[in-house]
């Protein structure tokens, strides 16, 4: 069974039909890039996958658990799925270390020393072990985003959702974040990214999902999709962004 199976998912914002019957299966270890114009529903789809948005019809099964916005279910899901946001969303009143240790101690019931070791380990992974005692506001955007990734990884999720995680960064800081993602991909982490980084989608991603008008318009292996787009809409989109 797929790690993520999305079946006939519909979502409305009032009268606006934003997801129009999405079907998508994602296997463990895959790196999937969801691309498309703004308003195509890609962020909404991602946010439906971990219960941040409610979908109105269809089913999403993630790691064998049905996704819903019920608080208890979101907590269960948090064991399987992590999320990194465009605006980092680090907790400003906690140090980098405390940001990472919070969920493992509260949710996993980990002891403080064990959580600290884990936090240092995760910070090492993103190259920021020396920032453990620092507050987020003292870090650059790229560093904050790497801490946010480390914070998600500390919960040992099976899949990491990334919602335009480089869009709020200065261009010179994008690289350091993408490098971390690339390393995670090479370690076999399942990544689902909503992204505008087409080079990354093509070079690191396994599969590309092109969304258009609330539908999965075209999907396929990353290299093929970019080399030989099948639909006129994707051709146009690629032409505009590359």
């Amino acid at each position: 069974m797929s790690l993520v199976s999305i079946h006939e998912v519909h979502k409305y914002y009032g009268d606006l039909h934003v997801l129009k019957g999405i079907n998508l299966n994602i296997e463990a270890g895959e790196v999937v890039s969801i691309i498309g114009r703004s308003g195509s529903g890609k962020s909404t789809l991602l946010r439906c996958m971990n219960g941040l948005e409610k979908y109105d019809d269809g089913t999403i099964i993630l790691d064998g658990k049905e996704v819903s916005t019920d608080e208890f279910q979101i907590r269960r899901l948090s064991e399987s799925v992590g999320m990194v946001f465009q605006n980092f969303n680090l907790f400003p009143h906690l140090t980098v270390g405390q940001n990472i240790m919070l969920a493992p101690t509260l949710i996993r019931g980990m002891s403080k020393p064990a959580a600290k070791e884990l936090a240092l380990d995760m910070l090492g992974k993103v190259g920021l072990a020396d920032k453990f005692g620092q507050y987020p506001e003292k870090l650059s955007g790229g560093q904050q985003q790497r801490v946010a990734i480390a914070r998600s990884l500390a919960m040992q999720p099976k899949v990491l959702l990334c919602d335009e995680i480089t869009s709020a960064l200065d261009p010179e800081l994008v690289g350091e974040v993408l490098k971390v993602l690339e390393q995670l991909a090479s370690e076999g982490m399942t990544l689902i990214l909503v992204t505008h980084e087409m080079n990354f989608a093509r070079d690191v991603g396994d599969r590309v999902v092109f969304m258009h008008q609330g539908k999965v318009w075209e999907t396929g292996p990353a290299k093929d999709v970019f080399a030989a787009p099948q639909t006129a809409e994707l051709q146009q989109f690629i032409g505009a962004v590359l």
Binding site: L52, E71, I74, S78, N87, L102, S152, M155
Partner: peptide, 20 residues
């Protein structure tokens, strides 16, 4: 976004209120 990040990490409403 901070509340969403906390929910995503699995914190309960009570934990989110008092800690975040």
């Amino acid at each position: 976004g901070q509340i969403e990040a906390a929910r995503t990490l699995g914190l309960s409403s009570r934990q989110i209120f008092f800690r975040i």
